[in-house]
Computed example of a mutant assay.
Amino acid sequence: MRHLIRVAVAACTLVLACSGAAAARVDRTSPDEQRILDLLGQARIVDDIGYHPGYDRDCDPGACVFGEPWTDDHAGPRGHNGCTTREDVLLMQMNDIELRWGSRCRIYEARLRDPYSGERMTWRDDGYDISIDHVYPLARAWHGGAWAWPLRTRITFANDVRRELLAVSARTNQAKEADGPGEWLPPWRRSHCDYVRRYVGVAVAWDLPLTTADADAVRRVAATC
């Protein structure tokens, strides 16, 4: 009988230890990781994003399906303020800004740290090499369902300065192309957590899909945050 009691006590101790280890693993989830996972739980996940004809960003030939690039004529934040969307993003995200004399939109000098590469840039030296990235690429959005939106909704999305647009180096913007997290992550590892959080946040806000590969990549990154 004493042997059976010892076995039962040992088994109980083992169960409690395992439960404690599982609880410890849960407790080690960081606030940043949990925030990303909570967002991911709201996202629409699909096996693959299909193809829908008609995407045109360059407006040649035919109409621009997301409107004229960087138009001020949109219904989102900072629309109709007299500055283009590109100028708005630069003014929001660059530092130590000095405007051109007599202008409230055009920058004479400013500093930027590329959130994708970590490269430090200045407007005077690198202005031509600073691009505005659509975090959730426009082509991907079109194929993921934006083709069915009214044009005004697509224009507002393409000029969403709060969530969708980032000032980055042209080199990293070109490297990203129309990829999602499943195919591309920023070369600067320190930016991975912020990037996937922003990407999923845009997808949730605009009801755009993530692929299963995107979701797997987001989970891997979130575990490091």
Rank of each mutant, 00 (worst) to 15 (best):
R57K: 07
R57V: 05
C59Q: 10
C59N: 04
G62W: 13
A63R: 15
F66K: 15
F66C: 10
G67Y: 11
W70D: 02
W70P: 06
W70Y: 00
T71R: 13
T71L: 15
D72W: 08
D73N: 03
D73M: 07
D73K: 03
H74K: 09
P77W: 05
R78T: 00
G79H: 01
H80C: 01
H80N: 09
N81L: 09
G82N: 12
C83Q: 01
T84K: 13
R86C: 03
R86Y: 03
R86W: 04
E87A: 06
E87Y: 09
D88V: 01
D88I: 00
V89Q: 04
L91E: 02
L91Q: 02
M92K: 04
M92C: 01
Q93W: 02
E98I: 06
E98G: 00
L99R: 13
L99K: 13
R100H: 10
R100N: 07
W101A: 13
G102N: 03
S103R: 11
R104V: 11
R104I: 11
R104M: 04
C105Y: 10
R106L: 05
R106I: 08
I107W: 09
I107T: 05
Y108S: 14
E109R: 14
A110G: 11
A110F: 12
R111P: 02
L112D: 02
R113Y: 05
D114M: 13
P115D: 01
Y116F: 11
Y116L: 11
S117P: 03
S117K: 09
G118M: 11
G118Y: 11
G118V: 11
E119C: 06
R120M: 08
R120Y: 01
T122I: 15
R124F: 10
R124M: 04
D126E: 14
G127F: 14
G127Y: 12
Y128T: 05
Y128G: 08
Y128F: 04
D129A: 11
D129T: 14
I130G: 02
I132Q: 01
H134V: 10
H134M: 14
V135M: 09
Y136H: 03
Y136V: 04
P137K: 10
A139C: 07
R140D: 08
H143Y: 08
G144I: 12
G145K: 12
A146W: 08
W147V: 05
W147P: 02
W147E: 08
A148T: 13
W149C: 12
W149Y: 15
W149K: 15
L151A: 11
T153C: 03
T153H: 09
R154Y: 00
R154H: 06
R154D: 03
I155K: 10
I155W: 03
T156R: 14
F157V: 07
F157G: 14
F157L: 00
D160V: 00
D160T: 02
D160M: 14
R163P: 02
R163D: 08
E164L: 06
